[in-house]
Design a protein around this nucleic acid. Sequence first.
DNA 1: TTTTAAAGTTAGTCAAGGCTAAATTGATTT
DNA 2: AAATCAATTTAGCCTTGACTAACTTTAAAA
Lengths: 142, 142
Amino acid sequence: MGDPSARHPRHNKAEVFAQLRYAHAREVTEDYVEMIADLIEEEGEARSVALAERFGVTAATVNNTIKRLERDGFVTSRPYRSIFLTDQGKELAEKCRKRHEIVYNFLIALGVDPAIAEFDAEGIEHHVSEETLAAFSKFSGN
Amino acid sequence: MGDPSARHPRHNKAEVFAQLRYAHAREVTEDYVEMIADLIEEEGEARSVALAERFGVTAATVNNTIKRLERDGFVTSRPYRSIFLTDQGKELAEKCRKRHEIVYNFLIALGVDPAIAEFDAEGIEHHVSEETLAAFSKFSGN
DNA sequence: TTTTAAAGTTAGTCAAGGCTAAATTGATTT
DNA sequence: AAATCAATTTAGCCTTGACTAACTTTAAAA
Ligand SMILES: [Mn+2]
Ligand SMILES: [Mn+2]
Ligand SMILES: [Mn+2]
Ligand SMILES: [Mn+2]
């Protein structure tokens, strides 16, 4: 009866899911650098107590995450002092800030309620490709 | 100098992130029940070897996940046999299938390339509220 | 019917990202 | 200067979701 791929389509979904797993691994990193940049701008410095409050997690969790971000080159920190973004961290934060804004504005332009848009944008932002982001941007009239 | 919340806005982002963490905890479950339903429809049964191939993970990983889904009441399975959805699993699969389709069609309607839309929809689907989904649906003309 | 190959299971390991409880440090009051 | 309080760190625990390697079962071929 010939090639099985003739009977059943190839279904190379595996690559889609591999990319999805990669996106998930980056989500926390992206939200942290973005939040650290916000805190530095709004309050002059990023303290872990503020990160814990805004993310709704414990101080211990923030500590772990900051260590990982430091290991990965996104932040620097010294014990009992505030947290700083590296150049790499600043770059990622800026990229994420713009992307977040585009996604949020797009949802608003679509007619979604601002409170709902705030929730959904926080998740969607990590899963939009450059192409989709451009389409969002175009739709909301830049 | 008065109430600090007068100087700095309240920033109750914590709830947004709590919901985001919840969405993440459900993602694998949602993708599995959806894929199991697809396999049953396309191939008559859902075998773990097919799940492993489509998700691009090992057989051991599928086994772990199926045990969790069983524990949570979404599937039933017996050793060395294929996997079945419970009523609860079927219900979730159907909801996810529809949602996935709406997200995908919406991206296509927006002008996103089908291959890119396939990638992005796989991630975005887990982060769209009912309200946003309705807006997507309306935009693509149901 | 025996042998072999494919599918599935089990055991053990790891990292991420959460938690609590306890210890430590730094900053503010007294 | 000492005491206190808030912030931070550390230690230990848990679940999810990934892996490899080894084993068992089932199905297919010889
Ligand atoms: Mn996600
Ligand atoms: Mn986010
Ligand atoms: Mn998905
Ligand atoms: Mn899906």
